[in-house]
C-alpha cells in the first residue's frame, strides 16, 4: 500500500477500471463476432450503427428488456445469486492486475493498479476458484438435466485444469522471486520477457487458461451441440447476460494475467504509455483466443480429462521442477 495515495484516488481508479473492463467486454463481443464473421466469409454485425458498432448496446438493451424466465422448481436463492457471484469475482480479479508503472500527478503517487497486494497472484487464483462456484451452483440450482450435465462438466474441467494453471506460473514466480504481479513485471525489465525462458510455462498456461475460461476447443460445459447451453440453459435475460459477462471478463483477466506474467505487462518503448502497451498486448492475446475458436473442433470429455491429467500436469510439474533447479543452481 502506498501511503501517499489517498483513498479517493483508489475509488476513481476502480471506477475507471471497472468501466474500462466492461467497455472492453462489450466491444470484445463485437470484435469477436466481427473477426469470426470475417474468418467465415461473412460480415458479422453491420446493421446497428457504422460497422455495427452499436451492436453491444443493442444486445444490452435486448437482454435487459427480456423476461428473466424463472424455472418453477429452481432453488431461488442459489439460482439468483449464482450469476452475481460469477460476475463479481470476475470483475474483482481485475483490481490486482497492473496496467502501468505508476505516475506522479500533483504530488500524489498513483500506482498502476487498484490494489497492490503482495500476494496478488494467489488472490487472483482464489477469486477465480470462487467464481467457478457460480457456474456450478447456477447449473445445479436451475434443476434442468442439461444444466446439471453442464455443471458436472464445469466442475471436473475447472478443478483439473486449475491445478495445471497454478503449476504453470510457478516457474515465473520462482524466476521473479515474488508473488506480486508488479514485482513480476519489474523483474522482466532487465532482460527477456518470461515468454522466452518460460516458453513451456506459457504454453501450459495458455491451454489451461483456455480450459478455465470455457473457450473452444475446451468449451464443453456449454457445448451447444451437445448440452444446448450447458449450465446456463435455464437462464435468460440479464441473468444470462451476467454469466456471459463473467465469462468474457474472466477471459480478459486471463489475457491480462498472461500479458503480465509472460509478456512484460505494461513494458514498452516509452514508459508513460504503459497502459497503451498493456491494452495492445491484451487485445493480441484475445485475438488468439478468437482465432482458436473459429478453427478448432471441440474435445471430448474423457479426452479433455486425460489430456489435463496425463499431459498438461506432468509437463507443468516438470517445468516447475526444472526452473526451480536452475534458479537454485544459477
Amino acid at each position: 500500500m502506498n501511503l501517499n495515495e489517498p483513498w479517493w484516488i483508489d475509488a476513481i481508479k476502480a471506477l475507471v477500471i471497472i468501466n474500462l473492463v466492461l467497455g472492453v467486454f462489450a466491444y470484445m463481443t463485437w470484435v469477436e463476432r466481427k473477426v469470426i464473421g470475417r474468418m467465415q466469409q461473412r460480415y458479422g454485425p453491420n446493421r446497428t450503427g457504422p460497422f455495427g458498432l452499436l451492436q453491444p448496446i443493442a444486445d444490452l438493451v435486448k437482454l435487459i428488456r427480456k423476461e428473466s424466465f424463472f424455472p418453477g422448481s429452481a432453488i431461488d436463492v442459489l439460482y439468483i445469486t449464482a450469476p452475481v457471484v460469477s460476475a463479481f469475482t470476475a470483475l474483482a480479479a481485475f483490481s490486482v492486475i497492473p496496467f502501468g508503472a505508476g505516475w506522479q500527478v500533483g504530488g500524489y503517487d498513483i500506482t498502476g493498479q487498484i490494489a497492490n497486494v503482495q500476494i496478488s497472484l494467489i488472490l487472483l487464483f482464489a477469486l477465480g476458484s470462487f467464481g467457478i462456484y457460480g457456474f456450478i451452483v447456477g447449473g445445479w440450482a436451475s434443476d434442468s438435466k442439461y444444466s446439471l450435465l453442464g455443471s458436472m462438466r464445469t466442475c471436473a474441467q475447472l478443478v483439473s485444469y486449475e491445478v495445471s494453471l497454478a503449476l504453470s506460473v510457478l516457474g515465473v514466480i520462482l524466476m521473479a522471486g515474488s508473488l506480486s504481479l508488479v514485482d513480476i513485471v519489474h523483474s522482466q525489465e532487465a532482460d527477456w520477457w518470461y515468454a522466452v525462458p518460460q516458453f513451456i510455462g506459457l504454453i501450459v498456461f495458455f491451454i489451461a487458461g483456455t480450459a478455465e475460461t470455457n473457450r473452444a476447443p475446451f468449451d464443453l460445459p456449454e457445448a451447444e451441440q451437445e448440452l444446448v447451453a450447458g449450465y446456463h440453459t435455464e437462464y435468460s435475460g440479464m441473468r444470462f447476460g451476467l454469466f456471459q459477462m463473467a465469462e468474457y471478463v474472466n477471459l480478459i483477466v486471463l489475457s491480462g494475467l498472461c500479458v503480465t506474467l509472460f509478456f512484460g505487462g505494461w513494458l514498452g518503448p516509452w514508459e508513460p504509455l504503459g497502459p497503451l502497451w498493456f491494452v495492445l498486448k491484451v487485445l493480441l492475446v484475445l485475438f488468439v483466443f478468437i482465432w482458436m475458436r473459429t478453427t478448432l473442433p471441440r474435445l471430448r470429455y474423457d479426452q479433455l480429462m486425460s489430456f489435463g491429467w496425463k499431459v498438461l500436469l506432468p509437463v507443468a510439474t516438470l517445468n516447475a521442477l526444472v526452473t526451480a533447479a536452475l534458479v537454485v543452481a544459477l
Binding site: I36, Q40, Q41, A216, P217, Q225, P297
Partner: peptide, 16 residues
Amino acid sequence: AALELGAISMFWYCFR
C-alpha cells in the same frame, strides 16, 4: 457434422 464437433467455420466454407 463439423459444426456439431465444434469446428464452426467449416459450416460456412461448405455452405459457400
